[in-house]
Design a protein around this nucleic acid. Structure first.
Lengths: 111, 111
DNA sequence: ATAATAGTTAAGTGATTGCTTCAGTATTAC
DNA sequence: GTAATACTGAAGCAATCACTTAACTATTAT
């Protein structure tokens, strides 16, 4: 579940759009309604709702409707999953570089 | 340069495709040629080259051609930039939750 | 009851994606 | 020189994207 490839597709796809990243950025400072998310964006409310649906489908954002206002929150576990995928690959690469450095240092010592 | 929004667009877009993530995963274990990247993928070599161009344009991968073989490497700085963007938002959210927890604990002490 | 607010849904449109095939160009092997 | 290898580039195509407008449904305020 933590490593579902299609979930990663959805999360990275969601983060690939600047409007959606701006929404996530806003939500990182606290919950917000749809209108509050829309306010700084130069597009229709309808477009914002569609972006929000993408974010919700990706698992990055969770929403709850009370009365007529829908309140949105970040889902930190999803952010952590995306972060983790990248981090593992970067660390694998860097560990490989370290081993290579050790090897070169050793073979130099034997000269 | 580290926080160029269009660079983040390109990086997250690049990571949104499972074939491209598989290529990055392969490269995290060491450099590879185009054919080596293509080998586990069920698509034409031409398609792989197109994916590779996306990865290169995003800055996640750097390539160098020697003779007729193009060798590909991960660019860890780019991975770090994507990782960092996510991490900052997640930490902002979690710090906020901590402050909220502290506040609730304090107001409870005053009962 | 009426009106304003907050959001939802559907249809349409032009641009972009993720492939394909086919026809190339260098480079290396025989 | 001929052939095999390792890509490269262009054209085409169906599907998806990021919007728009317009019509709609709830909920709250007066």
């Amino acid at each position: 579940m933590l490593h579902d490839p299609t979930q990663l597709d959805l999360m990275f796809q969601a983060l690939a759009d600047p409007a959606r990243r701006q929404m996530v950025d806003r939500l990182s400072r606290g919950p917000a309604s749809v209108s509050q998310l829309a306010e700084p964006l130069a597009m229709s409310l309808s477009a914002v709702v569609q972006h929000l649906n993408v974010l919700e489908a990706s698992g990055l954002v969770r929403t709850e409707k009370l009365g007529r206002v829908r309140t949105c929150q970040i889902e930190p576990q999803a952010l952590r999953a995306a972060e983790h995928w990248i981090n593992e690959r970067r660390l694998a690469w860097e560990r490989r570089l370290d081993r290579l450095g050790d090897f070169l240092a050793e073979t130099n010592d034997e000269s």
